[in-house]
Amino acid sequence: MIKWIASFILLTWAGIAQAHQPAISSIILTEQAHQGWILQVRSPLTAFEYVIKQHYGEGAFATPEEFQELVMEYLMDNISININGQDKSLALKNGFVKLGHDTNVVFQTEGIPETIETIVVKNPSFKDINRNQSIFMVLGEGKNNVQFILNNENQHTANLKVEEEQFVIQEANLIFGLLQDETIQSSFNYWLVGIISFLLLAYYIKRKKLLPIN
């Protein structure tokens, strides 16, 4: 009896833990020798099913082929990658979906220059899934591989630059970038804006002599 109860508790705990696991996905920009670049998006099939039903409706697809078409359309609408300050996001084409428990979506890309200096990537595809986070990587020739996390805290965006043969987060300008969510957390932004506002108010009061100054 004790063994049965222990097994039941263990199974219940495992189910609760699984239900609270964050949705982990990855988005990888890969350079292929003499074949250009491809973009790979990997995520659990359940995550894709959830966002497709949420976005297109419960009856949006009836066959695996229809589901795959919606997955590619959804990702192309949500993923944005801008390189070297280009006005337009990279074009994604010739996509295909490999269904499975861990589903993989692959696109060919257009518009990547020979020399990459900066990359701004945004992927809010799974933003409505609790505790979601996406790992972004660039696998390019001559570049050290570094992983960056896209999640709700950074609005699923990474602003990167090349430094010493690897990608690093670009530092936001503290004056002109206060309202940008590149590397400074929003809580810090609010705190800093509050301090600056207080100092400006104190200076204004002193100049106008609204309060006696000792």
Results as ranks from 00 to 15, higher is better:
49 E>G: 00
61 F>D: 05
87 D>Y: 02
90 L>Q: 05
82 N>S: 08
52 I>H: 00
88 K>S: 13
59 G>P: 11
114 E>K: 11
96 F>W: 14
71 V>C: 05
32 Q>C: 13
115 T>G: 05
77 D>F: 00
74 Y>P: 09
44 P>Y: 05
50 Y>P: 02
62 A>S: 14
69 E>S: 09
37 W>G: 11
114 E>L: 10
87 D>M: 03
115 T>A: 12
76 M>D: 07
115 T>I: 15
37 W>N: 13
114 E>Q: 11
31 E>M: 08
35 Q>N: 15
63 T>N: 08
92 L>G: 06
67 F>M: 07
100 G>L: 08
53 K>N: 07
97 V>D: 10
90 L>F: 01
45 L>A: 14
106 V>S: 11
61 F>Q: 03
88 K>W: 09
51 V>H: 02
59 G>T: 09
44 P>R: 03
43 S>T: 02
79 I>A: 08
105 V>N: 00
79 I>W: 10
93 K>M: 06
102 D>N: 11
80 S>R: 15
30 T>I: 15
33 A>T: 13
111 G>F: 02
77 D>K: 14
62 A>P: 07
91 A>G: 12
28 I>T: 15
110 E>T: 09
88 K>A: 13
52 I>N: 04
68 Q>D: 14
101 H>T: 11
46 T>W: 05
99 L>K: 10
49 E>H: 04
106 V>N: 12
54 Q>S: 12
32 Q>V: 13
36 G>C: 12
48 F>N: 00
101 H>C: 06
70 L>I: 07
34 H>L: 11
95 G>F: 06
79 I>T: 13
73 E>R: 07
46 T>Q: 11
92 L>I: 00
57 G>W: 05
93 K>H: 15
32 Q>F: 14
60 A>N: 05
109 T>E: 03
84 N>D: 03
114 E>V: 07
90 L>R: 00
105 V>P: 01
55 H>S: 11
104 N>I: 12
45 L>N: 08
89 S>H: 13
84 N>L: 02
98 K>Y: 02
101 H>Y: 14
103 T>H: 02
96 F>S: 11
49 E>I: 04
104 N>R: 07
77 D>E: 14
103 T>D: 04
109 T>N: 07
73 E>C: 06
96 F>C: 07
41 V>A: 10
112 I>W: 05
